[in-house]
């Protein structure tokens, strides 16, 4: 029974979280903490912290975490599948639609208009991460002087490696992680 509840709960989370990431957080909180009381608020805060520290979408991470707590590995798998099921159906349909109609003039126009918006969106997400990295918060800082020097240096080195020498981004991330451990230990 609990499997069906897990599947249905995370199916709804997957279906209604448009815009990804942090848009999904209140939905997850409602289902997991308030409705089913699978986790306490403290556990929920913990999973959000861990979701930020580990790769993967927040919704998938919390599905796995909650599933593990409730019903072990099989619970984790069921909750995760519930979470991606809506995407699988809807996005595959859209992919088909895109493949079939992308040559239409109207579609060409829509896509052409949307592209600059996408770049702006990514730039905006990037700026939040940059501020989080430099100032420890994703909002504009109150004073510019409180910048984290190590982060600035790592950012500059990473950007140079990516632009100038076309280094693989995954290699850049791993090196920055290792450099972080060394630099923060020393200073």
């Amino acid at each position: 029974m609990v499997y069906i509840q897990l599947l249905w709960s995370f199916f709804q989370i997957g279906l209604f979280s448009i815009g990804g990431g942090y848009a999904a957080m209140p939905l997850i909180q409602h289902q997991v903490v308030e409705l089913h009381q699978w986790l306490t608020m403290n556990q929920f805060a913990d999973i959000m912290t861990i979701a930020e520290m580990t790769p993967g979408p927040i919704a998938i991470n919390s599905a796995t975490f909650v599933g593990m707590q409730i019903a072990g590995i099989s619970g984790a798998i069921v909750a995760t599948l519930g979470c991606v099921l809506p995407s699988c159906v809807i996005v595959t349909a859209l992919a088909w639609f895109y493949s079939r109609w992308r040559e239409l003039p109207v579609m060409q126009g829509i896509l052409k208009g949307v592209r600059p918006a996408v770049v702006a969106m990514i730039a905006s997400a990037g700026l939040s991460l940059l501020l989080l990295s430099f100032y420890g918060q994703s909002a504009w800082p109150e004073s510019w002087g409180s910048v984290n020097g190590i982060s600035v240096c790592l950012f500059a080195a990473a950007l140079l490696a990516l632009r100038r020498w076309k280094v693989n981004p995954i290699g850049v991330m791993l090196s920055a992680g290792a450099a972080g451990v060394i630099l923060y230990s020393v200073f």
Binding site: V118, A123, S151
Partner: peptide, 25 residues
């Protein structure tokens, strides 16, 4: 510490793609 280091690199990765995609536009 490792996460803090990787965060700076993640910001750089996004910055890189914004420059490339922005040029296409």
């Amino acid at each position: 510490m490792a996460m803090n280091g990787m965060l700076a690199a993640v910001a750089a990765v996004i910055c890189d793609v914004v420059l490339s995609m922005g040029r296409t536009v």
